[in-house]
């Protein structure tokens, strides 16, 4: 007899009800669309207009995600 399946806990904040196809706006960040828009503007400039090599930024991004054990 197998053990009952234990569902992993969900996120602490529910996902927004109105969700599009974009994975970021469909995430919990979609609860604050104005903040998300401002963040994406900042993040976009960081990646698109920066003076650091993309590879350096990507290494730092991945290293940070691993340090925080953040799967996204």
């Amino acid at each position: 007899m197998s053990a009952p399946r234990v569902e992993p806990p969900g996120p602490r904040v529910k996902l927004p009800e109105r969700r599009g196809n974009d994975p970021i706006s469909a995430s919990v960040l979609g609860h604050q669309p104005e903040a998300l828009q401002a963040f994406m503007k900042l993040y976009g400039r960081l990646w698109s207009h920066g003076i650091l090599p993309q590879s350096t930024k990507e290494l730092a991004r991945i290293r940070n995600a691993r340090t925080l054990d953040c799967g996204i």
Partner: peptide, 10 residues
């Protein structure tokens, strides 16, 4: 709430 918590964490 959900929206407030998201703003707070951001």
């Amino acid at each position: 709430g959900d929206a407030g918590t998201v703003a707070f964490v951001e």
